[in-house]
Simulated assay, not measured.
Amino acid sequence: MSSIPKETSETFGMATVTKGLSNTSYHANPALGSSSIKTLATRTPAHYLYESHNQTHSTTFDIGTAAHSLILENDTSKFEVIDAPNWLSKAAKEARQAAYAEGLVPLLTKEFEAVKAMRSSVMTHPLARNAFIGHEPEVSIFWEHETGTRLKCRPDALHVGGKRGNLIVDLKTTVSAAPDDFASSAARYGYHLQQAHYTAGVKAAYGEDFTFLFVTVEKEPPYLPNVHQIHSTDVARGAELVERGIRVYNECTKTGVWPGYLIGKPLELPRWSFYKEEELLER
């Protein structure tokens, strides 16, 4: 169990690096993070506006949150283990809500054992293990874009110099850590955009380019880990999406208009429907 770290901040040019900042305080800061930028760039301003005023908690993220605490910091102080087979009983539901009220992540005993197995698997993988030794966990970086927009990022693990050089590591729990499957997840969830945003923030603070690694670990036995790097071409496209998201934010802030879907050109039905219907017509 880890003690609560003391919050410290340093300023580097237009960037501020804060260590020991709570997750709650980080998310309460109004600067734009990668998730907000992704929504602005790939969905609509209306989605961003709604989400920024309606923060909700999803229990689907509890396992990932606990895995981060255990793998990044070997810290069990942020979650509560509930001795129950599932969340169906009244007692389990009440214990779960009590944990949330205390700012803790509730886990069933079997979920806690799974998270421990995930950590063990990561820490026995030679590349993944090195990513989480001698790192600074969850450093919060705040900086200013050239347009004046305030931005933020919070890398899972940061190595500045040392044996591993300048390195940013992002931990993902996933269904499959296989390269092709993670590539699909990266495209679906905009991990290339996240990497571009984090890399820009770290460079704003430290003035240097950092290598970026994704460490993945599967959520089911045998909890296989893997280490990935996204191709530079995709990261460059992610950087363009970051700029688009910031542009959209600034325009909407200026006009006070946060539109939803725009009227586009006439729809073209997907190719699969064409082939299916052609086959029917030929019969």
Rank of each mutant, 00 (worst) to 15 (best):
M1Q: 10
S3Y: 11
I4R: 07
T8P: 03
T11P: 01
M14H: 11
A15F: 02
V17D: 02
T18N: 12
K19L: 09
G20I: 01
S22D: 05
T24C: 04
T24S: 09
N29I: 10
N29L: 10
N29T: 08
S34K: 06
L40R: 07
L40T: 01
T42Q: 11
H47M: 13
T56N: 13
T60W: 06
T60Y: 12
F61K: 07
D62W: 11
D62S: 12
I63V: 10
G64K: 00
T65F: 13
A66C: 04
A66H: 10
A67T: 09
H68E: 10
E73N: 08
N74I: 00
D75E: 12
T76E: 06
S77N: 08
K78E: 02
V81I: 08
I82Y: 00
D83L: 12
A84T: 08
A84V: 11
A84S: 14
P85C: 07
W87Y: 05
L88N: 08
A92C: 02
A95Q: 15
A101K: 05
L104Q: 07
L108Y: 02
F112Q: 12
E113Y: 14
K116R: 13
M118N: 07
V122S: 11
M123C: 15
N130T: 06
N130W: 06
N130V: 01
I133C: 07
H135P: 13
V139A: 07
F142G: 01
W143S: 02
H145I: 02
H145T: 03
T149H: 03
D156Y: 03
D156M: 03
D156R: 02
A157M: 08
L158R: 12
H159A: 05
V169W: 08
V169H: 09
K172C: 13
S176N: 10
P179K: 13
D181Y: 05
A183P: 02
A186T: 03
G190S: 14
H192A: 11
H192G: 01
Q194T: 00
A196F: 00
A196E: 01
H197Y: 06
H197W: 15
T199W: 00
A204N: 03
Y206A: 11
G207F: 07
D209W: 06
D209C: 03
D209G: 04
T211C: 12
V215C: 07
T216Y: 02
V217D: 12
K219F: 00
P221C: 15
Y223G: 04
L224E: 08
P225T: 01
S232L: 05
S232T: 14
G238E: 09
A239V: 14
R244A: 00
R244V: 05
R244H: 06
R244L: 05
G245L: 09
I246W: 12
V248S: 02
Y249I: 01
E251I: 06
T255A: 14
G256P: 07
V257H: 09
V257Y: 15
V257G: 11
P259I: 02
G260S: 10
L262N: 14
L262T: 11
P270Y: 05
P270G: 02
W272L: 05
F274V: 04
F274Y: 13
E278G: 09
E279V: 08
E279F: 10
L280D: 04
L281T: 14
E282D: 12
